[in-house]
Design a protein around this nucleic acid. Structure first.
Lengths: 233, 233
DNA sequence: GCAGAAGATATTTTCGAAAATATGTCCTAT
DNA sequence: ATAGGACATATTTTCGAAAATATCTTCTGC
């Protein structure tokens, strides 16, 4: 149990339970809490400084996100990472991301174009500043997430956007897993710019095909460099 | 607060919290707990015979399903029903249901065909037995859900199937809302049979187009007969 | 009469202890 | 030696009280 130490209380939400949910989520996505690891209450209490009940509520939330598995009467554990799960997430993401990107290309106005361009610009600046493997850097991760969020932000459906966000997080955990073992980062800069250009040019067919390849190749990379960490199949 | 009374403990799950989650879910979907209604702990304690903590865990679960809204520091309430939400759910369902049905038509074998036919047959028998408005009948609802589940059961993606199930429930709440005011049930029998036949005939284009219309017309029916209950817009 | 503070009440949120359940250990009978 | 049972330990799950926060009521000063 090498969770994030007890930090300043209530960083994220108004209630402690929401706060701890976020911190636990980050620890799981960053793989500080390892896939499959049992989440015992005694240890969590020590690490997060909260009571059984509050921790239970946080774990229940994360179960809904697919990051934690609850086994009734036998406690909780971090969701394992498997090939099947990675394939499932990847295919589902492609379906939903394409739908939302198409809608955004149709409906997005000036503000959308500006958001897409500026988030990509920020991402580029961060990549210049950080040499080598920036994928593990939290600043890069936030900027990366914000770029992809901007792309689909005019998808209009709160439900679909919520699902997308949840899947993005689950995928990010796999990315973090492979980042530990990847020798050199591939040219994501170019990929991102191409997607941006196709989107701004309102070329739906090209943009969606690029997003498809982008998501797929990210997943392939995980299989390539972290397959030894995936249990089952 | 006219929730289901204190029933036999642990009907659904091993733990009390899971059990209460299911019972609360049913009460919300059936509109025994009204949209927008505040869910106060004192009242819930009385109705379900559980403690603060256990109820809190149940409500947290349902928040993830979109059936309950949590307002930090100000408690929980049943998710309101709105036009925008209905449209959102409907469009998202169409996207996902079409994808899963297509996959099932491609991948489904003998077992799938048998499941589709037999669940439809059961649904028909129930409709014969129950004259008039059977939509509110729990037996019909279960059979109806099982038919639609059978149709998409070979979609292969646990994630997508989980999302689908959650959306189906949210939609069912709207159906129950309009059922209270609908004079006569429309010919769902014929619609369901047509979908079944197209699916078994492996006619993906026809089957998906029928499902699209089926979901859309269900939603239109809600707007037609229950629009006065939808807040906003 | 009314805005705003101050106090009283209602409600949610959090805690640690107690109950329920699972897991591990040791002993016995075959 | 080993399967099975009984006891002991570890862990989860549930509870009701206490703390924290919000909401309502009353009072004061203008």
């Amino acid at each position: 149990m090498t969770a994030s130490a007890v930090k300043s209380r209530k960083e994220f939400g108004k209630t402690l339970a929401v706060d701890i949910t976020h911190r636990l989520r980050q620890d799981i996505v960053a793989c500080r809490l390892k896939p499959g690891e049992p989440l015992k209450f005694d240890a969590l209490k020590l690490a997060f400084g909260a009571s059984f009940t509050t921790l239970r509520e946080a774990l229940t939330s994360l179960t809904a996100d697919g990051l934690v598995i609850a086994e009734e009467q036998r406690g909780f554990r971090v969701a394992p990472v498997t090939s099947d799960d990675l394939i499932d997430i990847t295919q589902t993401r492609i379906l939903i991301e394409i739908e939302l990107l198409s809608r955004s290309i149709t409906d997005g106005g000036d503000d959308w174009e500006i958001a897409v361009m500026s988030t990509l610009h920020r991402l580029g600046r961060i990549e210049e500043r950080l040499p080598g493997n920036h994928v593990e850097n939290p600043e890069w991760q936030i900027a990366h997430r914000q770029f992809h969020e901007a792309l689909v932000s005019c998808g209009r459906s709160p439900t679909l956007l919520g699902i997308r966000a949840s899947l993005f997080e689950r995928a990010e955990r796999y990315r973090n897993l492979s980042a530990m073992f990847r020798p050199q980062p591939r040219d994501k800069v170019g990929e991102h710019r191409a997607i941006m250009q196709a989107a701004i040019a309102r070329d739906t067919a090209l943009a969606t095909s690029l997003i498809d390849r982008h998501i797929r190749s990210t997943s392939d990379n995980v299989v390539k460099y972290a397959s030894h960490l995936l249990t089952e199949s």
